[in-house]
Write a protein that binds this DNA or RNA. Sequence first.
DNA 1: GATGAATGAGAATTCATTCAT
DNA 2: GATGAATGAATTCTCATTCAT
Lengths: 203, 203, 203, 203
Amino acid sequence: MERSAENSKERILSAAEEVFAARGIDGARVDEIANQANINKRMLYHYFQSKEELYIAVLRANFEKVLAISSRPFNGTGNLKEQVATAIGNYFYFLAQNPHFARLMTWEALQGGVHARKVLPAIWEEGLERLKAILEQGMSQGVFRPDLDLRQLLTSINALCSYYFINKDILSTLWDIDPVQPDVLEKRLKHIRDLVLNYITRP
Amino acid sequence: MERSAENSKERILSAAEEVFAARGIDGARVDEIANQANINKRMLYHYFQSKEELYIAVLRANFEKVLAISSRPFNGTGNLKEQVATAIGNYFYFLAQNPHFARLMTWEALQGGVHARKVLPAIWEEGLERLKAILEQGMSQGVFRPDLDLRQLLTSINALCSYYFINKDILSTLWDIDPVQPDVLEKRLKHIRDLVLNYITRP
Amino acid sequence: MERSAENSKERILSAAEEVFAARGIDGARVDEIANQANINKRMLYHYFQSKEELYIAVLRANFEKVLAISSRPFNGTGNLKEQVATAIGNYFYFLAQNPHFARLMTWEALQGGVHARKVLPAIWEEGLERLKAILEQGMSQGVFRPDLDLRQLLTSINALCSYYFINKDILSTLWDIDPVQPDVLEKRLKHIRDLVLNYITRP
Amino acid sequence: MERSAENSKERILSAAEEVFAARGIDGARVDEIANQANINKRMLYHYFQSKEELYIAVLRANFEKVLAISSRPFNGTGNLKEQVATAIGNYFYFLAQNPHFARLMTWEALQGGVHARKVLPAIWEEGLERLKAILEQGMSQGVFRPDLDLRQLLTSINALCSYYFINKDILSTLWDIDPVQPDVLEKRLKHIRDLVLNYITRP
DNA sequence: GATGAATGAGAATTCATTCAT
DNA sequence: GATGAATGAATTCTCATTCAT
């Protein structure tokens, strides 16, 4: 990892994300972040006013990451059912590949979203904005059941995906397999898709 | 301000549950617990060896609560579908009426279950043990689809229920209504039941 | 051990002696003393005003023990040389059989004798009072060298005896034998007697 | 009030030695050490993990001091008897000039050497290593009595020297003179030398 | 005499933050 | 930009002592 002056801020943010995701804001130690970023603690305070500011910066960066994902050209093809399946898969694998994201969101949720609120109030559902559009389209076209409550449904999809990653360690113990192994991931995704697609297509 | 000896420990446990559920083990302050329990901090250390021990005691008490629920006479009647609906409802309302439970479990989950592991390793699924039995029965009787993966399904039910309460504050902002109001709760439960029942009954 | 009311005070004193000898006044815990005495902590404060008072009471009791020894009929027979040997032996075995004594005296010594001073200022040499008398007799009779400095000599005898017991644990490690085993004790005593008698009898 | 970085650790160690020697590990207060070192308590924990670690560091430093003494060029001249006298004098004056040393060793001894053991197990006799060599030489040359038990003898010399300094305060009261005044010191040393030399040279 | 719970003052340890260079 | 030492305010934990019964 390069150590030129310019990327100091990046290194701090990245280390902070790691530590905050792992331990939450109260469990995180500024020292650990500085060590992991390979910078002097004083530099950390040069770039960020306080531990809390740094935490918020991490949240902001993560929100931007989802936004980027959710606004990038959609690779869903075929009919609307297939597009739902694709959108769910995209989200699921985004969470799998960005393990810090769901953890950060959950620490935040447990704290009532006090910090996240300072960044972007309505971000919570952003990652599923595309999916929402597809579902709305499907409802109006009669492909999906007309009585879908999108709030409930999007909440459920979020739950079905996030919960899995949040509880990874515990599931790992309970099931005695690694929940984030490729084939195990795929199995989980299939289950979520079945559950959701079955529901939205049957009146 | 009663001060009888026997309930001091209870008061401490109860205050600790409140504070740990609200802030997690790292965010909790022993002083706050002592104040809320209306005891001298010293007494807290008389009954519990350390903050961590107290936290574990809280976890243990909560585990026992679920166990008590899941092992009490089941009020499910009627056919297996109805029984599943009842079991989900029982669990959902248990979470609604014991708001600390899901929060404690989630703080724990985020920390990899390090403390919970010291109490009871396999407790995680305990609250849904009854439901599991019903589902197994339904599968063998051909009432439910035969290819149910119970691990996945129970995880999903847990997710659908817990996530809602964990994200209560955020949903409250997003939706601009109180998610734990009786009728809103009932709506959420209906959605979960639909999702699950639809899935398990269609091959 | 009997637990009738009357001997509570005795039990406390005895436990306190044990604990104070083992850990010193600062290392001792009132709780440990109470537990070991099998009484309620409150009783301890019934009999003794404070931890310090209790400690002083222990010192006093120990001083009385030496006084009793040093004033009891002397079993020294034969000539003065033999009497010196006997007196040294008596003192040495007193220390061996009352392991708390030398330890208490040494904790006190390290603390400048602040507490002991409150009990009996001149007690320090009491245990060797008899020996002093014999030595004086021997000097005037010309049996011992006439230039003996009794202060120095008594201090030395005290040192030669006490030091051994105080450093018991360390000698045990260094020598890899138990320093208070009967034959090892006897060897030490012989050495001390040789050293002293050789000195006092040669001009 | 200089504040250069390098000597902070030294100042802490030096203050700690002072306080630990004066009050023992249980009687010592971290606050007092910090004050005396003129640093913030926090720095103390920056350099040393805990009070116990600091105490062990003090022991280590003191052990190194004796080692340095005992391994420096010996200024003993003349015949073996004179060399013994010199070696005893060196040790005696080392203790006189390093009053913390004997005190630290004695606090340790009373606690069974639990902490010292972590530093250097066999250090206890180190300060008299040189003397031991001379005595061995003298025995084989027939200058000293052939039946010397060096363990006993070295223990005795240690006792005769250390005990004096450990009991300084009490002797001061008993004798009504200052035991560490130069001429009083010299008198004590003379006595010890007489005692020992008389013993080792007479069969 | 006896008990167990309770307490306030204090002691060790930790942490985010800032100063001097 | 960068550094390492320094700090004050908490925070956890401990202890001798006392109260209510």
